[in-house]
Simulated scan of single mutants.
Amino acid sequence: MSRRSRLRPGRTRTPELTAESPCPCGLPEPYGKCCGRFHSGESAAPTAETLMRSRYSAFVVRDAAYLLRTWHPRTRPERLELDPGIHWTGLEIEDTEDGTAFHTTGTVTFRARFRRHGKRGALHERSSFERHEGSWVYVDGVFLNPADDAG
């Protein structure tokens, strides 16, 4: 059986990551107690920033199903194909506005670093989040300083 055939639907390739691995989002908890519990559906992200971190980790593990599930229905694409040539290497949260249990909207500004076909790059974005049916969801994002992110 090939590695690809053992993957959950919506995943293209899973980096070696276990529940005990460091979480890709950069917080000190292991993956299983951090973003892994959101990916599995065990818990819902309590803040917009936590959702943003879990979505970054979903890109790392190529969990397209989670990304679609946490995308607002009004802006969500029908399907999502993740680029297997991108290897996500780090996340930096630059700013958060609102997005707590006391808010219905929030924004998170971040820089996500990656390597694609041996070249370094970064995605610098201000993402918008809303509560939808009681849970935080990603709405959309605005790219910041695209010229700075080329490598």
Results as ranks from 00 to 15, higher is better:
53 R>D: 09
62 R>F: 09
131 R>W: 03
105 T>I: 08
16 E>Q: 09
122 A>S: 15
94 E>S: 10
27 L>P: 06
114 F>W: 13
118 G>C: 07
98 D>S: 13
25 C>K: 08
37 R>Y: 00
108 V>W: 06
51 L>M: 00
139 V>Y: 03
138 Y>R: 02
47 T>E: 06
98 D>Q: 12
60 V>K: 03
94 E>K: 15
73 P>L: 12
66 Y>C: 02
34 C>N: 08
100 T>H: 07
96 T>H: 08
10 G>N: 09
74 R>L: 06
105 T>F: 06
143 F>Y: 11
48 A>K: 01
114 F>T: 04
89 T>S: 11
20 E>R: 15
36 G>H: 05
139 V>K: 06
80 L>T: 00
32 G>F: 12
10 G>H: 10
57 S>R: 00
112 A>F: 03
143 F>E: 13
19 A>Q: 14
47 T>P: 13
119 K>W: 07
64 A>D: 05
73 P>M: 13
50 T>Q: 13
138 Y>E: 01
115 R>Y: 04
120 R>I: 09
130 E>Q: 14
11 R>E: 14
98 D>P: 04
68 L>F: 06
27 L>S: 14
137 V>G: 13
36 G>A: 08
66 Y>E: 02
22 P>K: 07
24 P>H: 01
41 G>C: 04
48 A>L: 04
34 C>K: 07
140 D>W: 06
